Amino acid sequence: MPRQERAERTRQLLVEAAAASFDADGYTMTGLGDVTRLSGMSKGALYFHFGSKEQLAEAVLAGSRDGLRESIREARGSGGSTIQYLIDLCHGLARRVDDDVVFRAGLRLTGDPGLDASICPSPQTSWVLMVRLLLKRAADRREVRTDAPVEVTATLLAAAVTGVEVLARQDSQWLDREVITRLWRAVLPALVPPEELARLDASGSNLEPDPPFPAPDAMSPEPGTAGCSRLDATPA
């Protein structure tokens, strides 16, 4: 393996080990010895790449931001529907929180009292703004009902997705696809015209298809990271 490639691999292993420890124990309770133990690397290798625990945290946060951007790109396969894009993005973020320890750890670090908040402020403000922007765009395109409470719906969705991520720290079942699907199945009838329901996939259009969307009167009303930076909410 070439020297540069080996160095990059070592650095990535250290970042992943730090993320696993931050995710499990938080910033304050994580020691550099925990990172070397989990990564299988020496302290010399660690200090070659990172001069402090704070630098490790910054690297995890940067990796988490990359994961967020990747989730946004993946959701852009939704076609022209702004609402479907938002649905797919919610599913994509839940999957990434479940599967990607660096992304998950980055979300946790943004709220960790042991880490200077100026390094990476909470992504929640950007998430709220993004949801509002997408719903306003959907309203401008007449993709939502004229009587739909767009502002209330934006607040509900932003709070719900943030809440799912927080609850999942104790019980990962909150990230199940069905939880997000039920949330959207509860929201959509009040948000979009009846003729639009059949065109939307509450289970995520980028995943294996579920049965067709049920008629409004047959729907159950039961409802069910990121990194940080200003979010690019422009669907394809």
Rank of each mutant, 00 (worst) to 15 (best):
R137S: 08
T146P: 01
D140Q: 12
L129G: 12
K136T: 13
R142G: 00
L129C: 10
P189R: 03
S126T: 14
L133W: 10
L188D: 02
A138D: 08
D147E: 13
A159H: 11
L135Y: 07
R182H: 10
R141E: 12
A148T: 05
V144W: 08
L157Q: 09
R141L: 13
V166H: 08
D140L: 11
A160L: 07
D147I: 09
W127Q: 13
S126D: 15
L156D: 11
V144P: 06
Q173R: 13
V192I: 03
V128E: 14
E178M: 01
A158N: 04
A186S: 12
G163K: 05
A190K: 00
Q173K: 07
E143P: 07
D176E: 12
P123H: 15
L188G: 02
R185P: 00
L175P: 01
L188F: 02
Q124I: 15
L175C: 06
V144M: 04
V179H: 08
T153V: 15
T181P: 00
R132K: 14
S172T: 11
E143Q: 13
G163P: 07
R169S: 05
A158C: 04
L191Y: 02
E178D: 09
R185F: 00
R185Y: 00
V192P: 02
A160W: 14
A148D: 09
V152S: 12
A160I: 02
L191K: 04
R169H: 05
A148R: 09
P189F: 04
V152N: 09
E178P: 00
V150M: 08
R145P: 09
V128F: 15
L156N: 06
V144G: 03
Q173N: 09
A148Y: 11
R145Y: 08
R142M: 05
T125Y: 12
S172H: 07
P189Y: 02
V152T: 13
E151W: 05
V187Q: 01
V187F: 01
V161C: 06
R141K: 11
T162G: 06
R185W: 00
A148C: 08
E151M: 09
A168K: 05
R141G: 03
A148L: 10
D171E: 13
L188R: 04
V166L: 10
T153D: 06
A190C: 01
G163H: 06
A158H: 03
L156T: 12
T125R: 15
D176K: 06
A159F: 04
A138L: 09
T146D: 13
A154E: 10
L134D: 05
R185D: 05
R132M: 14
R177F: 02
A154T: 05
A154S: 13
L134I: 01
R145S: 08
L156M: 12
L175H: 02
L188E: 02
V161T: 09
L156Q: 09
A190H: 05
E178G: 00
V161R: 04
R182V: 01
V128T: 13
R137E: 12
V187S: 01
D171M: 07
